[in-house]
């Protein structure tokens, strides 16, 4: 489960405070598939970064699977991510100097399960249909293939929570659709909580729940077309505030 309480982020721009997110209260249940939508500059990516512990909020706090992220140091948050969190990026972000297989191995080796790691990585690559391209470098793969490797990498450690930042943003419509289908399947199989930031409303409608942001605030929080939504009241309501 993910909870955000009174979450806010303010940057300094030219010496003046620039609020990007303000007063976000959210609870996302385990195994939920949530899409975060909104125009450019609405704060989607900043919210994703804060929920994933990639950045520290200037107000409020985030709890991930019962762990208060603000209580952890930078390296402790990294270790937490290694064990519990997966990522899929818009520009795939495969390490260009590693092969497809080695890219998938990275999160597995980081937590030290090297013995079983290779079998798991091979299985995942076969699962995403790249069994014959394991020794290829990212530059030798198409965009769709790169994103499939990224999916395999994201699920490598059986994360409890998966964050996806515009996973179809750099792909054509057909390839994007395939990737989202694959993401849904893997999510279902692994029973992962999936938080996806997207511009694409068609993709967003496949989620259980769609949260819309504008001007750094939540402007709507509704059920999506992806099945029974698990919509919970805001954290402040849970806390009785």
């Amino acid at each position: 489960m993910i909870t955000a309480e009174a979450l806010g982020k303010t940057y300094s721009s030219g010496g003046r405070p620039l609020p990007v997110l303000q007063g976000i209260d959210l609870v996302i249940d385990s195994e939920a598939f949530v899409a975060v939508v909104g125009p450019s500059g609405s704060g989607k990516t900043t919210l994703l970064g804060l929920l994933a512990g990639l950045d520290r909020p200037t107000a409020g706090r985030v709890t991930l699977d019962g762990q208060d992220l603000s209580a952890l140091t930078e390296d402790q948050r990294a270790e937490f991510r290694a064990r519990h969190v997966g990522f899929v990026f818009q520009t795939f972000h495969l390490l260009p100097t590693l092969t497809a297989l080695e890219n998938v191995l990275v999160p597995l080796e980081l937590v030290g399960g090297a013995r079983e790691a290779r079998n798991r990585a091979v299985a995942l690559l076969e699962r995403v249909g790249l069994g014959d391209r394991m020794d290829h470098f990212p530059a030798q793969l198409s965009g769709g293939e790169q994103q499939r490797v990224a999916l395999a990498r994201a699920f490598a450690n059986r994360p409890k929570i998966l964050f996806a930042d515009e996973p179809t943003g750099n792909l054509d419509q057909d390839t994007g659709a395939t990737i989202v289908e694959m993401l849904e399947e893997l999510n279902r199989e692994a029973r992962t909580t999936l938080v996806m930031v997207t511009h694409d409303l068609t993709v967003a409608e496949r989620a259980h729940r769609v949260i819309a942001l504008a001007g750094g605030r939540v402007v709507s929080d509704r059920e999506g077309g992806g099945g029974a939504a698990v919509v919970r009241p805001a954290a402040s309501d849970v806390a009785g505030r």
Binding site: R81, A82, V106, P107, L110
Partner: peptide
């Protein structure tokens, strides 16, 4: 820098 950032996202600590 981007590769380093990705590694950090995937859970690698600074000293690793």
């Amino acid at each position: 820098r981007t590769a380093v950032a990705v590694l950090r996202c995937l859970g690698a600590d600074q000293w690793t």
